[in-house]
Design a protein around this nucleic acid. Sequence first.
DNA 1: TTAAACTCTGCCATAATGGCCAATTTACTT
DNA 2: AAGTAAATTGGCCATTATGGCAGAGTTTAA
Lengths: 407, 407
Amino acid sequence: MKIDLPRLQKQSGIIGTSEKIYEVLGMIAQVAPVDISVLVTGESGCGKEIIARSIHKHSKRSQTPMVIVNCGAIPEGIIESELFGHKKGSFTGASDDRKGYFEQANKGTIFLDEIGEAPLETQVKLLRVLETGEYMRVGDSKIRRTDVRVIAATNKNLSDLVKKNQFRQDLYYRLKTVNIHIPALRERVEDINPFVERFALEFTRSNEIRYRGFMPDAIRVMKQYDWPGNVRELKNFVEKIMVLEKGERITADMVNRELTDVLNEPLMENDRLPIAINKTSEQAEIDIILRQLFSLKQDTELIRAILSSDNEKSFLTVNPILPSEDLKIIPPLADPNMEVTEDGQPLIRDDAIGEILMKDLEKEAIIRTLRFFNNNRRKTARSLGVSERTLYRKIEDYKLEPKIKRS
Amino acid sequence: MKIDLPRLQKQSGIIGTSEKIYEVLGMIAQVAPVDISVLVTGESGCGKEIIARSIHKHSKRSQTPMVIVNCGAIPEGIIESELFGHKKGSFTGASDDRKGYFEQANKGTIFLDEIGEAPLETQVKLLRVLETGEYMRVGDSKIRRTDVRVIAATNKNLSDLVKKNQFRQDLYYRLKTVNIHIPALRERVEDINPFVERFALEFTRSNEIRYRGFMPDAIRVMKQYDWPGNVRELKNFVEKIMVLEKGERITADMVNRELTDVLNEPLMENDRLPIAINKTSEQAEIDIILRQLFSLKQDTELIRAILSSDNEKSFLTVNPILPSEDLKIIPPLADPNMEVTEDGQPLIRDDAIGEILMKDLEKEAIIRTLRFFNNNRRKTARSLGVSERTLYRKIEDYKLEPKIKRS
DNA sequence: TTAAACTCTGCCATAATGGCCAATTTACTT
DNA sequence: AAGTAAATTGGCCATTATGGCAGAGTTTAA
């Protein structure tokens, strides 16, 4: 299978014209079709996930799920349960065990981001599933198999971690069978031009901001900056400067001013750390615990309400377990109808706006939701909020049947 | 029972023609049919598990379970629970205690990989079960019995550990009643040929990779390499070089280049060092809490399911323990047949599928297309393929006016 | 300044939706 | 293998939504 690099670049959303990024694209083209583990390295903010998605997309597994796991965000105590699932306890009547991510990704791809954060005990198990596809759910001794392609990523130097006994050498060798290293932005400054154009254009499309371009000397200044946060930092910077300079043409002075502000801010140590919160790992875990306790309390109170009353089904007044400012509760939004466009994450691709008919959206939503539900018409109708009867009609009217592959 | 060595080799998947590997095969043939403990030693990546499986397969217990336990992967706090089971606590409704691996392996074989990692307290209990078959579940005083053959493995020098008081001498002597030592790959370089052929062939079978063989001088270079990761490392190397060299005939230059990359990373002794798993008591407590939380979560889900099947009430929300942004499951890609845009990209964000109403899509499409056209209703209607009249109505019906900022 | 484009809403004929139902098939459990 | 729940499918009818049209008024751009 021969992959056309410009097409791959376009489909992946990987921006850049530098030699280094072309090397990365070449590597992707080479390894994507082959079932082999890939280790993606590069500084924070370089786009490791984009690379992983691109590999999956051009792999033989592109029609199967991809599961993305951030190992650095999962507390040690439950990471193995999450990855491998666990055996249901001895609760009477328990009919289902819990599937882990490796099971959910069967036949597909699993992306293990921040793999350097995985606990050592977990690394042993990862090695095994990598080599043989075998794993066991926590608390179970039955050997299960999964057929998963593993792409791992880290912004750390794993061989350093190996030296410090923080990462297993055997797993390291296994993961780095193929290594794709993403160059830092400062190593490919010529890519700043297309990035800036892209970010600016996207920003204007979704906001009331005019874009009149950057002066060439402004771009030059930006090319001399270090960009420790890489592409992510550049994106934030472009958006910020567009807002602050109110749609004017961006000059070198403006850029200097804003970058000076950046440089005058003390670089926080945690900018370089994989944990992007100002809390210890334990504190973060405690937060999770409290949040979940709160959620459980809600559930149990609702269950009690069901059991104790027949007709009053309004939601109960919830008493927080702990009044704590560290416990972030997202309050219900005032108008659920506005939720979709208010949470900051659009549903529709930016560059589709102004190009597509409502009909097209509708068709795609139907097809893909049907696939999502394994062609279950009832579930699809419910999910989309249309009547089942209508769904049947639309499938017929739009002649969608051939596009919905039966599972 | 006389065992035919070539047959045993074929059935076991043990590769090699060297004298040393024939010795290992001979040992297996000798001890497999006898109910006696075996200690398998050898460097990491040598294939200790394959040996253990082979022993089980040719033993009298081959028709009974084999339980594989990696002692290095189980946290100290729960290893005894895992191995010996525990008496179920005060959980209401729990009808069964928890079986450990020794109980599950009754009448069969238990493979204790990385036995050198077992805590000293656990070693005492292992010794007892090895000698008498007796054990007790954690929290219970009832003596139970199991009839299990134990095969243990380690990549460590256990006698060194004994000297350092990190391994019990009595257990050591018990385990090494019979010792099968697997030679490192560098001690049997003549086996590299069949390994390479085998790995290459397997790899071509499952991937679109041509295999044109290795040049003899390439094999010679490989035979001079140390292979600290042993067979496992060789396998990875073969696969990698086949991918990177694109199905060409592999030359010594190619091999040198790839091995140079490996050699430039300092060889570490960490395979030989104890893996430090130091947890604070607080961390252990958090682990326990998280596990119990997990269990509670499952219980409430079950209760909810029971109630739902009775009452069709689905207003409970089940929150994953982890923030959802740490786990992404990407549905399979959209059908390439659906060429909505010129590059075949779906219009709707993947993770929106199955989550949103058609209404939501509609609303967002209207809002964002209106913005795109600077609030021009006529152009928006035309673009979306709906009548202008309808657009006005939808803006009113959905109360979208405040969301459409006038320019 | 002026013509074209756009905004906005009432009205009416037609199209689409949702609810309901029943026969049939499929999926799941024991 | 049997039983049962869930899902599929499409007819029918009342209700709701859409599109076309028109006209009065406003805004835009040349």
